[in-house]
């Protein structure tokens, strides 16, 4: 659960009134009158992997007591196959929380950009019909470094994917055979076997850098706390710093007294936790610091 919560943190976002735009459904008399206090879109993992189901999570926090939530529009999940959808409306102190968990699976690797879900409602603060947008989501699916595209369903791509998968299986079986052989030799020599360890899927530095650049672009275009967290996560992943590290851990990990990585880590930490009225400046500094590092 802790890992899931950790994974969620960088991807959740609070997109409030500043992102609300006049709704095209303004004339629709069925719009609900709502106080939208938070609207987030995220995933339960920062490292989704091909052919392994994961969840996309949408949370809407309302300062109203409502029995249902209408006019919540989901984006099209191009490149992801939906497997299930679970919705719940929970009463929380001071209002209601809507949670939607969409289980999906990716059949191909690469970077996936998902448009933000949106909610059409009458903003109870000023009585105007608005479209509330959550944050967009950028996911890097572990697997072959292939950019997912909306039109990527051509036969050639499918054939290429099948070949890659087959090659992957052959490689996997060869490695498994080698490991088995090594263990048998050790057993024959009487050497103790290495303890079993769960190893995380490894991504190439190129994949990491691309993911970092992607989230940095999102941060530069849409400065928000959630986008800062996404940059923070990808920066640490790129630098080989454990995800659960605090800033002190991270600085100790890099063994760098001065330098661009140290500056970037500190600048991003400031943007992640500073006061809201300092966020704009802090984001500008963080983007500049990370850009100096990766461009």
């Amino acid at each position: 659960m802790v890992r899931i919560a950790r994974a969620l943190a960088p991807l959740t976002a609070i997109v409030l009134a500043p992102f609300a735009v006049p709704s095209p459904a303004a004339a629709d008399a069925t719009l609900q009158r709502l106080h939208v206090s938070a609207f987030t879109f995220g995933a339960d993992t920062t490292h989704p992997v091909m052919e392994r189901p994961f969840d996309l999570l949408i949370t809407v926090r309302l300062s109203d007591r409502v029995r249902d939530l209408r006019n919540l529009i989901l984006p099209t999940f191009i490149g992801l196959e939906p497997l299930g959808d679970e919705r719940s409306l929970i009463r929380v102190p001071g209002g209601t929380e809507y949670r939607e968990r969409i289980t999906v699976i990716a059949h191909r690797g690469g970077t996936l950009r998902i448009a933000p879900p949106y909610l059409d409602a009458v903003d109870a603060r000023d009585g105007l019909p608005k479209r509330f947008l959550a944050n967009p989501l950028v996911l890097t699916i572990g697997g072959p470094a292939e950019m997912l595209r909306g039109d990527g369903t051509s036969a050639s791509r499918n054939v290429f994917g099948v070949i890659l998968r087959a090659a992957g299986w052959v490689l996997f079986l060869a490695l498994a055979g080698l490991l088995l052989l090594r263990r048998m030799i050790r057993a024959r020599r009487g050497e103790p076997a290495e303890p079993e360890r769960e190893r995380e899927r490894e991504f190439s530095p190129h994949d990491r850098l691309r993911a970092l650049r992607d989230v940095l672009d999102v941060l530069a275009e849409h400065p928000s706390r959630a986008a800062v967290f996404a940059v923070r996560t990808q920066l640490r992943a790129w630098a080989g710093i454990p995800a659960e590290a605090t800033l002190i851990d991270a600085l100790a990990h890099i063994h760098e007294r001065e330098g661009p990585l140290r500056s970037a880590l500190i600048a991003v930490e400031r943007a992640a936790f500073c006061k809201d009225d300092l966020l704009e400046d802090a984001v500008r500094d963080a983007v500049a610091a990370v850009e100096r590092l990766v461009r």
């Binding site: 605090t246 800033l247 930490e269 400031r270 992640a272 936790f273 006061k275 300092l278």
Partner: peptide, 11 residues
């Protein structure tokens, strides 16, 4: 600093 970071809490 004028803001708390996780290190402050953990320390």
């Amino acid at each position: 600093r004028s803001f708390v970071i996780p290190d402050d809490v953990r320390s």
